[in-house]
């Protein structure tokens, strides 16, 4: 079943899109607008750095981005105040489409960003990237502007892990990818194993892609996005871009366990919906882990229901704002 034709054809490096003048020219020629969305939750240490670099390089010097929008999940630190001080649009997720039930999570912010942003292309970048650089954005936008068949791009990286204040481990990371997602893809969608880092948090795409897919609220968003785009439009509309290095915080195995639970649940629900498997029971919402406290095992039980937002194209307020008909 091994097949790497997509990988050979649709894998790029950010270096191929360094000519920002060319990208701006293509954007103008195609009469497109581009929005950058930064979902946040307590990111006061990193948000300003992301905003100033993107504004400087991709708005002031090269007019590639038309807007930067911060969608915040209710930070308790100075995230929103700092972001506003750099003159970008800042929203609390709960204030967007207030008539609908409120959820808290990255997927919720990304879904609501569709309603708030104006761009034909939307790019989502995590707001906690320590070594942020504008290549993270132009690298993902490049294939969308220069290749007509590509409608969605996803990042992959060399992934050093921050092991403390001043220490980095040069390789590693991606444990959930290698232990959870890659085995699942290999079992059910071998073609998708060509995507090197399906869980990377940075991706870009045309609005007509994002508005037609559902958005799980929590960690399952990246997995469901790939499965839905694959099912609706096929692998050829996707591309992956090497963005070099991304420094991220190392997470504990237990935290990754919680993440894996959510991803597996999203995956199983998706393949059941696609008729690939029959699951003859309801999936449980509790993840149970154990800690050894004073020589005794104590359970840590996390309640993790997987809520999901429907395709935005079906939301009347969105249809009205963007003059859309429901095609989902």
């Amino acid at each position: 079943m091994y097949n790497n034709t997509w990988q050979k054809k649709n894998t790029f490096s950010y270096n191929q899109f360094k000519d920002l003048d060319l990208l701006v020219k293509e954007k103008k020629r195609k009469n497109l607008t581009i929005s950058l969305c930064l979902p946040t939750l307590n990111e006061e240490r990193t948000i300003a750095k992301e905003i100033i670099i993107m504004k400087s390089e991709l708005m002031t010097r090269f007019p590639l981005l038309d807007e930067i929008v911060v969608i915040d999940s209710g930070s308790r630190d100075k995230t929103r105040e700092i972001a506003r001080s750099y003159d970008v649009d800042v929203y609390e997720a709960n204030d967007i489409l207030p008539a609908y039930e409120k959820f808290k999570g990255k997927g919720e912010n990304l879904w609501k960003a569709l309603y708030i942003t104006k761009g034909d292309i939307i790019i989502y970048i995590d707001a906690d990237i320590k070594n942020i650089h504008h290549r993270f954005v132009y690298g993902l936008i490049g294939p969308l502007l220069l290749y007509d068949n590509i409608r969605y791009t996803k990042a992959f990286y060399d992934r050093p892990i921050a092991l403390g204040k001043d220490r980095l481990r040069p390789t590693g990371g991606g444990r959930v990818t290698e232990l959870v997602i890659r085995p699942l893809f290999s079992l059910f969608f071998p073609e998708l194993t060509q995507i090197l880092q399906p869980l990377s948090g940075e991706y870009a795409g045309f609005r007509d892609i994002f508005e037609n897919i559902a958005f799980p609220i929590g960690y399952g968003i990246e997995t469901s996005m790939i499965l839905d785009i694959y099912e609706k439009w096929g692998l050829d509309v996707m591309a992956q871009v090497d963005l070099d290095r991304r420094v991220h915080k190392n997470q504990t195995t237990k935290a990754l366990g919680v993440m894996s639970f959510m991803i597996m649940k999203t995956f199983l629900k998706r393949i059941a919906r696609l008729g690939r498997v029959d699951i003859n029971q309801n999936l449980f919402d509790e993840m149970i882990q154990y800690s050894l406290v004073s020589e005794e095992l104590q359970p840590d039980v996390f309640s993790l229901p997987t809520s999901e937002r429907p395709p935005m194209i079906g939301i009347p307020e969105y249809q009205k704002k963007f003059s859309r008909e429901n095609t989902a």
């Binding site: 240490r45 990193t46 300003a48 750095k49 100033i52 100075k78 001043d166 420094v247």
Partner: peptide, 14 residues
């Protein structure tokens, strides 16, 4: 620079 191989991580606020 404490370590010549490790990029500094600047924090920017308002």
């Amino acid at each position: 620079a404490k370590d010549p191989c490790l990029d500094h991580d600047f924090i920017v606020t308002d």
